[in-house]
Amino acid sequence: MPILSVSGVSRAFGGVQALQDCSLEVAEGSIAGLIGPNGSGKTTLFNVVTGYVRADQGTVRFREKEITGLKPNQVFALGIGRTFQLTRIFERLSVLENMLVATQRREGWLRGLTRSKSSPEEVSTALELLDFVGIAGLAELQAGALSYGQRKLLELAYVLVADPQVILLDEPAGGVNLTLINRIAEKIRALNAQGKTFLIVEHNMEFVMSLCDRVTVMHQGSDLVSGAPEEVRRDPRVLDAYLGGGDDELEEVAGG
């Protein structure tokens, strides 16, 4: 039984068919990869799963439960966290406060009125996670002052703070230097060992191929091929997709 399954999802923006009958399954406890040329619909798929974009057709299931059309906060409350391709943090809050925003998945809004910003446990969990991604020293800094890479780490950390079961990462390695890429990969492996499931969109082939148990290739809004990294790498259709897309990643897929 997959923990997350997308079946037959379509979505158009005006004339652009961003998703076209796209299906995907992610097994519990796995690290799944999602690759494909620019504009093939990867981010849109994330948006549909997390409730940011409505699907025209198709369903999304989390365990047994259908979650199509839920609001982002409801999806989050069920235990699906995500990061954004262009990182989104709360720039005028401190790094620690950024973490605290996300600590409670299902707390009622009235409770928020009557309780303080954070309990000591929440603060210590938040600090532990900041430490885990290596930016605990910046906890009191205003988040807007963080560098690009630090923002990526902060976003990763605050998605983790509410302890989601499935984590969707949109290009965690994009625009990040090699040392940091390795560190992020290491964190993902460590979390995976603790039982977290990942779905990762990434253009860095080495990163995807070394990390993922299973890779899905998207092309023009549909899932083209799914399989183990080795199979996907050898599949001629994948090459065609990237060739058609005229993408630089071609060599990486072929040679990688």
Partner: peptide
């Protein structure tokens, strides 16, 4: 000092993101 206040500040910075982190933006 309350969580409610923190949620309002999060809404000020990025409302959609706050929603995706479980903040019930409309009620808040």
């Amino acid at each position: 000092r309350s969580r409610f206040g923190l949620q309002m500040l999060a809404i000020r910075d990025d409302e959609d993101r706050a929603l995706g982190l479980g903040v019930r933006t409309t009620s808040v």
